[in-house]
Structure formats: C-alpha cells, structure tokens
Nucleic acid binder design. Structure first.
Lengths: 197, 197
DNA sequence: AGATTTAATGAGCAATCAGTCACCGAGTTT
DNA sequence: AAACTCGGTGACTGATTGCTCATTAAATCT
C-alpha cells in the first residue's frame, strides 16, 4: 500500500473515531457533519469523500458496534444457559458502552428505516435468547408459569427506560451499575417464587 | 366581548385544535409551524400573533392534556386504593389518548428543559401513587417483599417501551388494548406469589 | 364620518445543515 | 522532469424552518 492509500485509510479511520466520540456525547441527531470535520481537523468536504452521506457514516459506526455486541452475546449464550449469568453478562456489555446505548435507546425511533431495522434485528436476536431460556425454564418447572414474551418485554422495556432516561437517574457514572442488582433481583422475583418468612 | 375579541379567541382555539391534531399525528418535533398554519387555513405569521413561539404552543397544548390526565388519576386514586383497579384506570387514560402519549414517550428526551420537567413532574406524581399503594401493600403482607421503586420502574418502563415503539407492536389500533391483560397479569405476578399446581 | 386600533397577512430574514464542486498540490507514473 | 492522479480543501448551494415586520382592512371609538 503506497503513501496515498495509507493516508486515505488513516483519515477514514480518524473520521470514524472522532465521529463516534461526538455521537456518543451528543447523540447522532444533534451532531452535525461540520462538528465532526472540525473536531477531526479535516475539511467539511473530506467527510463526504469517505462517506456518501451522514446516514452511511452512522450506519458504519453502529454496524461495527452492534457486531461487537452480538458476538459478545453469542459467546455468552454459548458458554452458559443460566439466565442470571446471561443477564449479568448482557448488563456488562451495556455498561461498557453505556453512553452509546443510551443514545440508541433515545434516538432509535428517529433513525432512517434501514438503520432502525438493523438495530431492531440485532435486538430481537438477543431477546430471543432470553425468551428461549425462559420458555424452557418454565417447561422444566424451574420458573413460574407466565408469558415468556411479556416477561422479556418487562426486562428489556425496563432496561431501555433506564438507559433512555440515563441523565435523570445518574449525574455521572453508570445507570446500569447503579440499578443492576435491583434489576436482577426484581426480574428473578418475577420468574421465581422464593419462600419468604 | 366584541366581534374582534371573539374572532381572536376563535382563531386561537382553532390553532390549538389543529396543532394538537398535527402533533399527535407526526410528533411535535416533526411538525413545522408552516404545516400547522396551512392546515388551519391561516397565515404563517398569525400563529406567532397568538403564541410567542413554537415551544409555547407545545407547552400550552400539553399542559391542558396533562391537567386532564392528572385529574383523571386523582379521581382514580380517590375512588380506590386497589392496585389492579388503579392500573386498569391508568391504562384506560393512556389508551384514550394513546397516540399523544406515544409521541410523548418517544420525544420526551428532546423537549426543552422546562417542558420536560413539567411532564416528568406529572409523571412522578402518578408513580408515587403506585409506589405508596405497593409499599403499604408490602407492609400489610399483601405483596411480596421487593423494592417498591424498582417494581414501579418495571411497570412504567415497560408501558413506556410499549408506547414508544407503538408502531412496531401494532399497525393500527391500540398497543395498550393489545397488551393490557398481559401487562396486568405479569405485574400482578411480580407482586403476588400465586400457588400454582 | 373620520380617526384609531388591531387581527391578520405573507413576503422575506437569518440561521442551520447536508451535500457539491472547481481547484490545489503532494504523490505517483511515464 | 514532465504529465498525470487523486486525496484534500473550503467556499458555495439549496433546502428547511422558526420567526419578523411593514402593510392591509375591518372593527371600534370619538
């Protein structure tokens, strides 16, 4: 690869890095291509030399991120079919990139169709893992007889809620960290009837 | 009141009516002042004769709506301290204006500070009613020993999730109607350990 | 009836953005 | 070293939008 191609690739990666930073901080909708160019120290036009448009830039960044998330989940499911372990690991993955997932939770309904579908598809894969484990757990008499779909929606809905209103729940730091044990114990309470004294 | 004042008031109310229609249909963020004026059959400038700016218009519409909601809830709590009754009535109120509440669930994080605070304040009043009933229910041994705050967040988070992704859950009709019995039964399952055979 | 007030008008302003294009100059090829 | 290639530039464009203001005409007042 010659000097030119090398420089081109370097610039491209630099844009991706800076764009992700800006997106995570201000959200996708409130980040302008101008800001990105400014922060990256390149001309505004250069951005469109590397990415057809703003949407494509977003898609590429999120695709990469969601891929990471998906493979993390895949690993997780491969390693263990224990629901609590799965939930803990899922929350870990969210916490690692919490700011990004917070932006996603808030802005998802406003993204272009294609991107929204991609994100929701990934999400549905993860949900289905939980769904399956719960369903078979109910079949095995391990969990109470309740509707697994609704149970999953309770879990994901609640997590989504915490994420999307993150700035209200915590000033700095992590919502997931703050509420993880409550989320886990309450979700367990939904699935299992412990004997209480 | 003379002819002029009467006409003025009529125009003002007409704007409010049309604006609400547009807002409910397309969301506050995606409705332009131009669209409203066009639909209302008035000049664009007229809108700003009656409302200082777009935000004020939104605030006025929502204030009225939230007032209705709040008094509905107040009634509800006055009439009954039974959690299931409260939940049913709450879901009724949401279902009545579901499109509006769906917009609210999606767009809340993007509203101007002042409006966001107002909405969240109303919301917190409603939540606290549920919180209190759950807390005293736990004290009375009626419900399981779990964290009432988290339980309430599970409920409101889930409802919020259904509302904000409404268009995915139903094509036409009501998400609340579709999932109300599942929401109620799953939430009851969280609070109460039924004996199962 | 003439003077005054004011609701309504709509052309136009200013700001914001995504995206374009003619041009430049360093790097590559001949 | 001359010709050519191409990554990078940044001024510019066009679309969108919230909002203003000089002007109009109908209602009200004197």
């Amino acid at each position: 690869m010659n000097k030119r191609q090398l420089q081109k690739q370097k610039t491209r990666e630099h844009i991706l890095k800076i764009a992700k930073q800006e997106f995570v901080e201000k959200g996708f909708l409130n980040t302008t291509t101008n800001q990105i160019a400014l922060q990256a120290g390149i001309a505004h036009g250069t951005l469109f030399l590397h990415f057809k448009n703003k949407d494509n830039l977003i898609v590429e960044i999120l695709d990469k991120e969601l891929e990471l998330m998906s493979s993390g989940i895949q690993d997780l499911v491969g390693r263990s079919a224990d629901l609590e372990q799965m939930l803990i690991l899922y929350l870990n993955l969210l916490e690692e990139d919490e700011k990004l997932f917070s932006v996603l939770a808030r802005e998802l309904p406003f993204y272009p169709e294609e991107l929204r579908r991609k994100i929701m598809f990934r999400d549905s894969l993860i949900r289905s893992h939980f769904h399956n484990v719960i369903e078979s757990g109910i079949g095995a008499g391990k969990y109470r007889k309740l509707d697994p779909s609704t149970a999953v929606t309770f879990l994901f809905g609640t997590i989504n809620y915490y994420l999307s209103l993150r700035s209200i729940f915590v000033e700095n730091g992590s919502v997931i960290a703050k509420f993880r044990s409550k989320i886990i114990s309450t979700f367990k309470a939904l699935l299992i009837c412990e004997k209480e004294k």
